[in-house]
């Protein structure tokens, strides 16, 4: 088993699948000659040519729609959107076509495209390049939304997502790309819709995903020094959503904290908190709490930006206040 980066895990999985099945091709801004703005596709143009690695105009809506249309005709398009912020220009295609065309057509038409995009802040890019909007997409019935937190899940979930017959939004937190982890060399899949207990504990359940999983694990290490045992659950897939794993954990620990990089008000963490309250209310020893981004546009200044984001200290303080 080799230790590789999150970026390399994605790249090697894409290349492997591209070699096996010609229906896969990719469209996006600067994915070819430039090598990908996050270098995920570096070298792919050279191997697969411009028929399968297609540099597009800066025109997110038609890129997304072309992916949907090609998927309707039987291909397996992958659309890379440079960041989730730019995906708003293609929102019409995702909301009004991709997620509902199967339903609206009475099951006649499907759009099995894979949409990849980078998300998240922390790099002083201010309010147009730093938000985490995946929770908006998880709101959509008909779309699947996955948010891997480590190289192993990134490779396994990408392989699974590429075989889906439904549109899948594959969300890659930009801060995770250089992170390393062990990844088997032989192909494997991590099924979508299964949460993962990454650390067992008995006093509190910390529900997190994407960048939040690293924060949760760090917080658990700190809490352990104070004699508090935290169970860390990596949601991995926002939709389909695995509530059972979370409820089982909360019934054991009696407390839950939900961590996310999106804004607190109206976010996905609020949905998770509501579900825990509906399904495990009698087991709770404290109200479900959230650690999320502050309700402000992402600031440029480094100190202000760091203050606006969730971190391990905020998680530790929140847990301690509950016990």
């Amino acid at each position: 088993m080799a230790e590789i980066t999150f970026r390399e895990a994605l790249r090697s999985t894409l290349i492997d699948q591209f070699r096996k099945d010609e229906r896969y091709f990719m469209m996006g801004e600067d994915i070819g000659a430039y090598g990908g703005s996050y270098a995920v596709t570096r070298g792919m143009l050279e191997e697969f040519g411009d028929r399968r690695i297609m540099d597009t105009p800066i025109a997110e809506s038609v890129i997304m729609g072309a992916g949907i249309g090609a998927a309707m005709a039987g291909l397996r398009p992958i659309v890379e959107v440079m960041t989730i912020n730019f995906s708003l220009l293609a929102l019409d295609q995702v909301v009004n076509v991709a997620s509902c065309v199967r339903y609206m057509s009475g099951g006649q038409v499907q759009a099995p495209l894979l949409i990849r995009m980078a998300t998240g802040g922390g790099r002083q890019l201010a309010a147009t390049h730093s938000h985490s909007l995946e929770g908006w997409y998880a709101h959509l019935p008909g779309l699947k939304v996955v948010t891997p937190s480590n190289p192993y899940d990134a490779a396994g979930m990408l392989r699974a997502a590429m075989r889906e017959d439904d549109p899948v939004l594959f969300v890659e937190h930009a801060a995770l790309y250089p992170g390393k982890g062990e990844v088997p060399e032989e192909p494997y899949e991590v099924p979508l819709g299964k949460a993962n207990v990454v650390r067992e504990g008995k006093d509190v359940t910390v529900v997190c995903w994407s960048r939040g999983v690293g924060l949760g694990q760090e917080a658990a290490t700190q809490l352990e020094r104070d004699g508090i045992s935290a169970e860390i659950i990596d949601v991995r897939s926002m939709r389909p959503f695995d509530l059972d794993t979370i409820v089982t954990s909360v019934k054991k620990t009696g407390r839950a904290v939900v961590v996310e990089d999106d804004w607190r008000f109206g976010g996905f963490a609020g949905e998770v908190a509501a579900l825990i309250s509906e399904h495990a209310f009698d087991y709770l020893d404290a109200p479900v709490r959230r650690v999320a981004a502050e309700d402000v546009p992402a600031p440029y200044n480094r100190l202000l930006e760091q203050a606006s984001m969730p971190n391990e200290t905020k998680i530790v303080n929140t847990v301690k206040a509950m016990i």
Binding site: S61, V62, I63, M64, G65, A66, G67, I68, G69, A70, A71, M72, A73, G74, L75, P77, D92, Q93, N96, V97, V101, M104, S105, V109
Partner: peptide, 21 residues
């Protein structure tokens, strides 16, 4: 492959079908 009710929303879809051809 459909009637579409967001004005112009199906032109990108047509491009995708054409790309597949």
């Amino acid at each position: 492959m459909g009637g579409y009710a967001i004005v112009t929303g199906h032109l990108p879809i047509a491009c995708g079908l054409g790309l597949a051809m």
